[in-house]
Amino acid sequence: MSSWLEHLIAKSSEGSAGKTGLWRTFKPVHNVEKCNRCLLCLYYCPENVIKVYHHRFIIINYEYCKGCGICAEICPQDAIEMVEEEE
């Protein structure tokens, strides 16, 4: 493909709308003790920012998490709490 044409095609990348974490007013905070690793939060995260490592550690990517709160709502163990963001 010629180089000028290359520029016309958009490239897949994270953050196509910028750092969407800045949209957040409430932040999901994960409680390891309460969590039973059912991973419902991961499967139902519209933003795909929840990851699990070694079948155990749940990490939320706050750079892009928009704070919609679906994860906290869906968690059967109430292991995710929505905490108001500070300045």
């Binding site: 953050g15 196509s16 709308a17 519209p46 933003e47 795909n48 928009k66 919609c68 709160g69």
Partner: peptide, 22 residues
Amino acid sequence: MESILLPGNPACQGCPHALGLR
């Protein structure tokens, strides 16, 4: 585990399309 829709996209908070695309 992964979605064809990458994080940091312009969808609204709690967008159902993002869930469907997942």
